[in-house]
Amino acid sequence: MPSPGIKPQVALATGSQTPLQPNATRAEAVADRLRLEIVSARIAPGTLLRETAVAEQLGVSPTPVREAFAALAAEGLLQVEAHRLKRVTPIDLAATHDLLRVQTKLWRFGYEWGMPNVGPEEIARLGHAIEIYRDALDRGHALAAIRAGHEFHSVFIIASANAELLRSTLDRRSLIARFILLHGSTTISKAGLRKHKAILACLKRGDADGVLIQLDELAARLLAMAGDRDR
């Protein structure tokens, strides 16, 4: 569970009357709403979801819910069951460890391929992500801190100009965020923030090897969380 002082960011309750995001399509808005609730565990792992029930609760037709379910299933957050039911993917620590092994390797490729293309604009974005991370920690918003960390890594992956690498990492960010939120107190701590700051410091002084060393240490900490619980 998250460490003391770091509380999960409150998600909208499924039955809430709060309107969906106005600047998205209906399907995108439904997907965003459900994604937040699943990642923050307001909708618990293993929960069965029915299109008609979710549509009624959110005040939309079943069509955008069906499209949202398909998008979330593609991200690994939902599993397809019989009779059009979807189950929120349970947290399987062995599968999570495998996921993290793959994703941390992809992050490293992103760093290696992206670093030569990082310029002042990317440096500014990295610094901004760190500021958001720090502010989220200060406010006790764990999910916002996790997302800031993901945005930090994405700067390198986007700089790599490899669309397949970007797609492969974006598709699993929500699964990783949920795991970190529920089990990853060490990665959303001040120590985790220091690692991101160390990466940026190495980058600014042109120390590519130092960047990768810091990234590898961050990845090892993340893998240890799943590995330790899998024993």
Rank of each mutant, 00 (worst) to 15 (best):
residue 159 A to R: 04
residue 173 R to N: 14
residue 155 V to E: 07
residue 145 A to M: 04
residue 148 A to G: 02
residue 160 S to C: 12
residue 148 A to C: 09
residue 138 D to C: 08
residue 165 L to W: 07
residue 155 V to K: 02
residue 165 L to T: 05
residue 178 R to D: 05
residue 138 D to K: 12
residue 142 A to N: 13
residue 171 D to N: 14
residue 160 S to Q: 12
residue 141 H to F: 01
residue 154 S to C: 13
residue 164 E to T: 14
residue 143 L to V: 06
residue 139 R to I: 04
residue 156 F to M: 08
residue 181 L to I: 07
residue 142 A to E: 02
residue 150 H to G: 08
residue 171 D to M: 15
residue 177 A to L: 05
residue 147 R to A: 02
residue 162 N to S: 12
residue 140 G to Q: 05
residue 176 I to D: 01
residue 138 D to Q: 15
residue 181 L to D: 05
residue 148 A to M: 06
residue 164 E to Y: 13
residue 141 H to Q: 11
residue 157 I to P: 00
residue 168 S to V: 10
residue 146 I to D: 01
residue 171 D to A: 15
residue 156 F to G: 07
residue 181 L to M: 11
residue 160 S to H: 06
residue 145 A to T: 04
residue 149 G to W: 01
residue 155 V to A: 10
residue 164 E to L: 13
residue 147 R to Q: 13
residue 151 E to P: 06
residue 168 S to R: 13
residue 148 A to K: 00
residue 148 A to R: 01
residue 159 A to D: 04
residue 174 S to G: 12
residue 143 L to C: 06
residue 142 A to C: 10
residue 140 G to W: 04
residue 168 S to C: 13
residue 150 H to M: 06
residue 173 R to M: 12
residue 149 G to K: 03
residue 171 D to G: 10
residue 148 A to Q: 03
residue 158 I to Y: 09
residue 156 F to Q: 03
residue 173 R to Q: 14
residue 154 S to W: 05
residue 148 A to D: 01
residue 172 R to C: 14
residue 175 L to I: 13
residue 146 I to G: 02
residue 145 A to S: 12
residue 152 F to W: 01
residue 140 G to A: 06
residue 172 R to I: 15
residue 147 R to S: 05
residue 174 S to D: 14
residue 145 A to H: 01
residue 161 A to L: 11
residue 179 F to E: 05
residue 173 R to Y: 09
residue 160 S to W: 07
residue 181 L to Y: 07
residue 166 L to C: 07
residue 147 R to W: 04
residue 163 A to Q: 12
residue 165 L to P: 01
residue 179 F to R: 03
residue 176 I to A: 04
residue 168 S to P: 00
residue 158 I to V: 14
residue 160 S to P: 00
residue 147 R to H: 12
residue 149 G to I: 04
residue 145 A to D: 00
residue 159 A to H: 01
residue 164 E to K: 15
residue 179 F to C: 06
residue 139 R to A: 11
residue 168 S to N: 15
residue 177 A to F: 02
residue 149 G to S: 08
residue 139 R to W: 10
residue 176 I to R: 03
residue 175 L to F: 10
residue 149 G to A: 12
residue 171 D to C: 12
residue 179 F to Q: 02
residue 174 S to R: 05
residue 145 A to V: 08
residue 144 A to N: 05
residue 148 A to I: 00
residue 180 I to L: 10
residue 151 E to V: 08
residue 174 S to N: 10
residue 169 T to K: 11
residue 169 T to Q: 02
residue 170 L to G: 04
residue 167 R to I: 07
residue 142 A to I: 02
residue 144 A to H: 09
residue 153 H to Q: 11
residue 146 I to E: 00
residue 181 L to V: 11
residue 178 R to Y: 12
residue 156 F to N: 03
